[in-house]
């Protein structure tokens, strides 16, 4: 069943559809929250689903559920980061000075290290990346969201997402090389 159909059924008030929606997307929400915070946080995950319940009746584009969900998750993560590290938290929603028009578009191939690095090492390397770069890698590669959805979630232009992905892949490769993996 498509996400759009599930969302429409939820908007109608079908409770079993909401249960199905949670079962389908809970893993992705939990993974995003865990990777972004560096640890699991049930309260944040719960906060995300509460916001989904509240917002679903007003969601105008059911077919855009995934970007909408991750926008909510992102907001919840940012709130938690602000609470935890208020003076030092790295803002996620400010475009970088180096991003914008004029930056060459990178070629879209998966990182060479992806196939050979084990899950734990990849998680460690991801955690070492700056929040903005970690976020775009999570959304684009782990959640398999298209560039425009990533841009919508992060509140930046598609070009900025591309440049962040480019930089993120480079930083990830450097991090893995530092840990002894061959690029």
């Amino acid at each position: 069943m498509s996400d759009e159909l599930l969302v429409v059924r939820c908007q109608l008030g079908e409770r079993d559809a909401f249960a199905e929606l949670v079962r389908e997307w809970h893993g992705a929400v939990e993974r995003y929250v865990t990777r972004m915070l560096g640890r699991g946080d049930d309260d944040v995950v719960q906060e995300v689903w509460l916001a989904v319940v509240k917002g679903l009746p007003r969601l105008r584009e059911p077919e855009r559920f995934a970007p909408w969900l991750f926008t909510i998750a992102r907001r919840a993560v940012m709130n938690r980061l602000r609470e935890a590290y208020a003076p030092t938290a790295e803002p996620l929603d400010q475009p970088q000075p180096t991003s914008g028009r004029g930056i060459s578009t990178p070629v879209w191939e998966p990182p060479a290290s992806e196939a050979v690095v084990d899950r734990e090492a990849m998680a460690g390397a991801l955690a070492a990346l700056p929040a903005r770069e970690r976020e775009v890698l999570l959304l684009f590669y782990l959640e398999d969201l298209p560039l425009d959805a990533c841009a919508q979630i992060c509140g930046v232009p598609v070009g900025t997402i591309k440049s962040r992905l480019h930089r993120a892949r480079r930083l990830l490769r450097e991090e893995l090389t530092r840990e002894g993996y061959e690029a």
Binding site: A19, V22, H26, G40, D42, V45, Q46, W49, L50
Partner: peptide, 11 residues
């Protein structure tokens, strides 16, 4: 936390 836990809390 499992999906059932989430649904239980949202009950």
């Amino acid at each position: 936390m499992t999906p059932e836990d989430v649904l239980g809390r949202l009950d």
